[in-house]
């Protein structure tokens, strides 16, 4: 996929795709990210996508909805989705709103995330 179509630069590690999100996610960006990730999953036939959200300061209901939907789509393409680095205030806010991020494997950090990629 052409570089300019990417909203988030990704890194391939083994058969995983690391996605360090270092931008503020708004509605349009998260939709573009979904399209980008599905294309990259198909192109590289990766086993897992690891979303690193350490730098993300706000995850609201629509961002959650779209990320959850992306995980479901990835699953249908035979790919796991791991999310790691959710910041404490974001975790607090999501939990208080009752948002669960279904379909994701949740990791504490990148190392844990890499471990989950190969767990049974």
């Amino acid at each position: 996929m052409a570089f300019k179509e990417r909203v988030v630069p990704t890194i391939r590690i083994g058969d995983s795709l690391l996605v360090p999100i270092q931008i503020d996610l708004d509605d349009k960006t998260v939709e573009q990210l979904q399209t980008q990730l599905l294309a990259e999953i198909q192109e590289h036939r990766v086993r897992a996508v690891i979303l690193d959200v350490r730098m993300v300061e706000v995850i609201d209901s629509y961002i959650s909805y779209t990320l959850t939907e992306t995980a479901a789509m990835a699953h249908l393409m035979g790919c796991r989705t791991v999310i790691c680095g959710i910041q404490p205030p974001v975790a607090l806010t999501l939990a208080q709103m009752g948002i669960e991020l279904q379909g994701f494997l949740v990791a504490r950090d990148l190392e844990h995330a890499m471990g989950l990629v190969y767990s049974p």
Binding site: D27, S61, P89, T93, Q96
Partner: peptide, 17 residues
């Protein structure tokens, strides 16, 4: 606090949407 800043920002995001 950072937690409350995040809650306020998230709530406003929902209202605006």
């Amino acid at each position: 606090s950072l937690a409350d800043v995040t809650k306020v920002a998230t709530a406003v995001s929902e209202l605006a949407r």
